[in-house]
Design a protein around this nucleic acid. Structure first.
Lengths: 239, 239
DNA sequence: CAGCTTATTGTACGATCGTACAAGTAGGCA
DNA sequence: TGCCTACTTGTACGATCGTACAATAAGCTG
């Protein structure tokens, strides 16, 4: 519940090292034997991702991010502008995984084997997330997605609307081919429950404590159980 | 990610208007025809509950709470001490609902009709929450529970451990009588998914936007669908 | 009335926050 | 050589935060 009133953004130009701009090939001169000095912009991005994922967007300060990246505070603003833009940039860099989910779901809508279709939809929807979560570089981002989805603040909800509304649309549309007679609202509720389960799969820390470390999210059998749970839930509600 | 270092709490005595102390029968003198002046302590408590539920613990300042309650800031500290104690007091005032859940679940463990037992367990576990959520005075608290469960901050996790670990224990213990052959970890994962679904049921704001207002959580049929979803999920995973 | 306890208020301290801004450095190209 | 651009840094401003504290008001008990 903040009420910030500051001058509007007047930053002249910001380096766009991401996609279209020149591929950021400065710093080519490095002493022989010296490891290529890591990109400080990337350092900031990874630090922000890790910290946001662990503590939530609001609980992490720009100074925390800069400290973890080992750069002065002002460099964060230089590369990413305001704090909400930094959050958005993180999600932009991870869009590939999201687009894979959408395209896999949409592909199922056209080719319909009519058999075990639901399970395929659930897999197409959840599997990229679980795979990302299991990878070493993506585990913090999958956690960040959950934190952002649960964050009631305006910055987080804006991110969710922008990046994940298309996924919901694709999922529901394909799901309607599997359950043509199920009312739309019921599908929506079932989707909510599935999202809740998936977010808990990816983000909950409590299960580690409750199981005394025996329950690990990396086990493929756990994912198979997850698919079973969600698939059966959908079937029970809509069939 | 804050690092506060202040003097330890040296407040002498704080009014304990809640449970054991004298029932707070001051302010008995009111002019005839004048409505009994509302308890300002209660006002603060309700304001805090509503604001924490809507924006999350960290995003709400003590000043926000005082402003909503119409009292000066210092009164919050006078009645509740530090901010984490205020959060804990809210949960203490709502413990009745939690204890109902636990006792209902435990009651099912002794009398076992062996038939439809799982559905009864799920109902005993979820129904008090849904009923509280549907009531006018409890809808903000059920939202607060979800926000707190999802909050990675230390204050929130302390609350969850203190108040909800007994519920998990009761649920799992009773569940083991229904699925004697299901491994413990699998039950734990299924419980996680069920919690995720329940929290989404209670707290998610996105479904209102996605359904354009047509999906209402108050509908009893929605709760029946929820029970179906979770029950089928458990059965598919553990049976 | 006095005396004590509770309730109430304004205020101020120290800390942390996001963000802007001016000044500085360094490398590529003329 | 000098200039342009990208990168880097220290710092400071205004705002907001949790919390403590002294002082006052109000109500009850004698």
């Amino acid at each position: 519940m903040e009420t910030k009133t500051r001058k509007a953004a007047t930053r002249a130009v910001r380096p766009e090292a991401g996609g279209e701009a020149p591929p950021r090939a400065r710093r080519s001169k490095l002493a022989p034997g010296e490891a290529s000095r890591p990109d400080r912009r990337q350092d900031i991005l990874e630090s922000a991702e890790a910290l946001f994922a662990e503590w939530g967007y609001a609980a992490v300060s720009v100074r925390d991010i800069a400290a973890r990246a080992g750069v002065p505070v002002a460099l964060v603003g230089y590369y990413f502008g305001r704090k909400p833009e930094l959050l958005a940039t993180i999600f932009e860099h991870r869009q590939a995984n999201l687009e894979e989910r959408i395209s896999r779901i949409r592909a199922l809508a056209v080719a319909r084997p009519e058999d075990a279709q639901l399970e395929q939809i659930v897999r197409a929807w959840a599997e990229p997330v679980v795979r990302l979560h299991a990878s070493s570089s993506g585990t913090s981002f999958s956690l960040l997605v959950a934190r952002t989805a649960w964050d009631p603040g305006p910055e987080a909800t804006a991110i969710i609307e922008r990046f994940y509304d298309p996924l919901v649309a694709a999922f529901l549309e394909t799901l309607r081919t599997a359950f043509p007679d199920c009312p739309h609202e019921r599908l929506l509720w079932a989707y909510e429950y599935a999202v809740g389960a998936l977010l808990m799969y990816v983000a909950d820390k409590r299960i580690e404590r409750l199981s005394e470390g025996r329950a690990t999210a990396g086990d493929p059998a756990v994912f198979e159980d997850f698919v079973r749970f969600v698939t059966a839930g959908f079937t029970a509600m809509c069939r």
